[in-house]
């Protein structure tokens, strides 16, 4: 059966991708941010997963407001970077883990969790940037992907508790997949940021640090928080952190926090990552 080899939580700020594109990785503004990901990258290289299940949100690039799936699962053979306004980025296409994707869809729906199923769809920086942060910029990605989109743009967004349930089910589904795939789960988004309204530029370094420490073994409070709590503590766009809950719920009750990194601000965002292994 397929095996979950670990979970990572990470920011997916678009300016991270732009910094890579423009060769700014070693500049004073960005070096401390990228250096902090080196242990995470090394962990990924050592663990050699076959598949990355990436939980992220689209940012008005693939989905418009004409149809807003609360959850969507990709079942495509390949995912191309979408044009976000500047032309598609020169990032390799992402090969889909088609059979695993369909298996997850079967299991989710059988268990009364009903995502939109996407056969032909592009991906934005929400998936691209986490992949680049943990796998660099290879000619071909060393893993296949299962993209899972969560609506965090138009209210009502799903509750943190629903994201948690999604993670629980995802684990059962992955571990019932007949194969020997090594699967890493990537929960993405955040950390604190607010891009809209007069509180724009809101960053909560204290709450971010507490999150990075607590998401491993003090997760209950985050699981039980309301959407309003997320917005208040992490900013309107920082509520993206609910997607880390999907990853965390797919892990054991007790986990080992292998790596952690925080840097702020990346553009207008508190940014960072954790790497978790089942204890």
């Amino acid at each position: 059966m397929a095996e979950i080899i670990g979970g990572v939580g990470t920011s997916h700020v678009p300016s991270i991708g732009i910094a890579i594109d423009k060769g700014l990785v070693d500049t004073p503004d960005w070096k401390p941010f990228f250096d902090g990901y080196i242990p995470g990258k090394q962990w990924m290289a050592d663990k050699k997963p076959d598949v990355a299940v990436v939980i992220f949100n689209d940012h008005g690039n693939t989905f418009f407001l004409d149809r807003v799936p609360t959850f969507a699962v990709g079942v495509a053979e390949s995912y191309t970077p979408v044009d976000e306004g500047w032309g598609p980025r020169a990032v390799p296409d992402f090969e889909g883990a088609v059979d695993l994707s369909w298996h997850l869809v079967d299991q989710l729906v059988d268990n009364h969790f009903d995502p939109m199923v996407c056969r032909e769809i592009e991906v934005d920086h929400g998936l691209q940037v986490p992949m680049e942060l943990f796998f660099g910029r290879p000619e071909h990605w060393p893993v296949k992907v299962v993209p899972i989109w969560v609506n965090t743009i138009q209210y009502p967004i799903p509750t943190p508790q629903r994201c948690w349930e999604m993670g629980k089910l995802l684990r059962k589904a992955i571990e019932s997949f007949p194969g020997d795939e090594r699967v890493v789960i990537m929960g993405t988004g955040g950390l604190s940021h607010q891009l809209q309204g007069s509180r724009a530029g809101f960053i909560n370094r204290e709450a971010d640090q507490a999150w990075l420490d607590g998401i491993a073994n003090d997760y209950e409070k985050y699981r039980d928080m309301t959407r309003e709590d997320y917005v208040e503590q992490f900013g309107s766009e920082g509520a993206e952190l609910i997607m880390w809950l999907v990853m965390r719920a797919a892990m054991d009750d007790k986990v080992e926090l292998k790596h952690k990194h925080y840097y702020a601000p990346a553009s207008m965002t508190g940014a960072g990552m954790v790497v978790l292994e089942n204890a």
């Binding site: 209210y155 809209q196 509180r199 309003e228």
Partner: peptide, 11 residues
């Protein structure tokens, strides 16, 4: 959602 100050949620 309007109770969170200075924060226009996209409702």
């Amino acid at each position: 959602p309007t109770q969170i100050p200075e924060t226009p949620l996209f409702d």
